[in-house]
Write a protein that binds this DNA or RNA. Structure first.
Length: 219
DNA sequence: AAAACGGGGGC
DNA sequence: GCCCCAGTTTT
């Protein structure tokens, strides 16, 4: 895909995405006025779990606690029951308490808006930190989850092997005015249409771009 | 029955 | 770089 193709592709996707169910990030952003703490917690919950199964779990948890101080009043067992059946729920219950403790102790219960500070929190890596910054604070950033990584390469826009490489490549190549839009659209696009195996090319409104670059059609 | 899901951390 | 982490969903 050439640089000049990005704008029409994103514009088309923006029209389509409105009709799809929200991904967990969209749900959280909508239900919480993009509260950074909710973004952070929901993102941790979604690790190594299908994002859509995380949406209900995070909703149940936020009904109990949506601040670090409130979270620290919960026992690990109570958190586990709320977030079941997301994968790794035992580890994640402990981890959520660790994050809440660090936020309360070091930042007065506020969630930092700085990547490097976010990365010091237990279990927070580049994807989670970037998501908090871009979705929680609406600051420009490149948040490469598995969908952004896969689709960027499927389009041939970049050629990278790891999400880390993709973040670097996109930061250098993708015009900055598209950064947030790119993140917002590619996640739901990847979840609902442009999936890892057998994507729904017949329902995809931008499949003509794949045709032009010779990507094989799926169902 | 087996693969898919999918980010972080430890080595 | 490689491998492990846990449990549900899809093939």
């Amino acid at each position: 895909m050439r640089d000049a193709d990005i704008h029409p592709v994103l514009r088309t996707l923006r029209r389509e995405v409105r009709q799809w169910p929200d991904p967990v990030v969209g749900v959280v952003a909508k239900d919480s006025s993009q509260d950074p703490f909710r973004i952070l917690i929901a993102t941790v919950l979604s690790l190594r779990t299908k994002d859509l199964t995380t949406a209900e779990a995070s909703g149940r948890l936020f009904a109990l606690a949506d601040t670090p101080a409130a979270m620290l009043k919960l026992t690990p067992a109570r958190i586990e029951r709320a977030i079941y059946p997301v994968g790794f729920y035992r580890n994640k219950a402990v981890q959520l308490l660790g994050i809440s403790r660090a936020l309360l102790g070091r930042y007065g219960g506020r969630v930092p808006d700085d990547i490097d500070e976010l990365l010091t929190l237990p279990g927070v890596g580049r994807k989670t930190a970037n998501l908090v910054v871009t979705v929680g604070y609406r600051k420009p950033g490149i948040c490469v989850d598995i969908h952004v990584h896969r689709i960027s390469n499927r389009w041939g826009y970049i050629k990278t092997r790891t999400p880390e490489e993709s973040e670097e490549a996109l930061r250098a190549k993708l015009p900055k005015r598209y950064w947030i839009t790119y993140n917002d659209l590619l996640v739901p696009f990847g979840q609902h249409l442009c999936q890892p195996v057998s994507p729904w090319c017949s329902r995809c409104k931008v499949s003509d771009y794949c045709d032009r670059i010779g990507v094989t059609r799926s169902r």
